[in-house]
Computed example of a mutant assay.
Amino acid sequence: MDANTLYSHVRILLEAHAKDDVALREIAPLIARRSLEMNHLYEAMGFANRGEMGKFMSQHFPALASQKPSKVRWKKFLYDSIQATAPACEGCPDEDDCFRSECSLEWHRR
């Protein structure tokens, strides 16, 4: 899928689970856009860590957050939910094993 299609699918997924109008119209498109970046989603969103990202998602997308397994990262969860691979993960040797405490996201910068 191209970037525009990925963006649309992630946005639609988030919009379907938005808690309110702000999450629907402002936050869902922002997250979808940032999910295309080549770093971790929490970093792209400006959070210090994954815990902050989780709290943010629980606040704005509680039904979706309740479906996410605790050991799965948000970007992986979103892209798995739309049956796609995140651009940053495309071709990563660890893409199928994305539950580790450390991600080898640096692989694509080589």
Rank of each mutant, 00 (worst) to 15 (best):
S70V: 12
K75C: 05
K75V: 04
L24A: 07
L41G: 01
P62V: 15
K71L: 12
K75M: 09
V72G: 07
A48H: 11
P87D: 07
L24C: 00
D21N: 13
A28D: 00
A48C: 08
A18F: 04
N39H: 00
A32L: 08
I82H: 05
L13T: 00
T5W: 00
E15Y: 06
W74P: 00
V22K: 10
G46I: 07
R110W: 02
S8T: 10
L105E: 12
P29K: 05
R110P: 12
L14S: 07
D94I: 07
M38W: 06
F77E: 10
N49C: 08
H9Q: 10
E52W: 10
L30S: 02
S58D: 15
F61R: 09
E90A: 12
I12V: 03
S70P: 04
Y7D: 07
K71Q: 15
P62G: 06
H40T: 10
G54M: 09
G51N: 10
S58L: 07
Y7C: 01
R50T: 15
D20T: 04
L41W: 03
R109N: 13
C98S: 14
I27N: 02
E26S: 04
L78K: 05
S58T: 12
R33G: 06
E43L: 14
C89Y: 09
N4R: 05
A44D: 01
F61Q: 07
E37Y: 09
R50G: 15
A28E: 04
A65W: 04
E43A: 02
L24N: 06
L41D: 02
Y79D: 11
I31S: 03
A84E: 09
A65D: 13
A23S: 05
P62D: 15
S66G: 13
L13Q: 05
A32K: 03
N49K: 12
W107T: 14
M45L: 11
P69A: 14
T5I: 06
L24V: 02
S66V: 15
K75I: 00
L6T: 01
T85N: 11
V10H: 04
H9C: 01
H9L: 09
K19F: 00
F56E: 07
H108N: 13
E106L: 10
V22G: 02
P29R: 01
A28M: 05
R11E: 00
A63D: 15
A84W: 03
V72E: 14
D97H: 13
R110T: 03
Y42S: 08
E26R: 13
L64T: 09
H60G: 12
H17G: 11
Q59W: 07
E106K: 08
E26Y: 08
Y7K: 11
I12N: 02
S66N: 15
E37D: 06
M1Y: 13
A48K: 12
R110E: 08
K75N: 06
C92A: 02
G46C: 08
S66I: 07
A63G: 06
Q67I: 15
G91Q: 02
C89A: 12
A28C: 01
D20Y: 02
H9E: 00
S70D: 07
A16Y: 08
L30A: 03
E52G: 15
S101Q: 11
P29D: 00
P87F: 08
S58N: 14
V72W: 13
S58H: 14
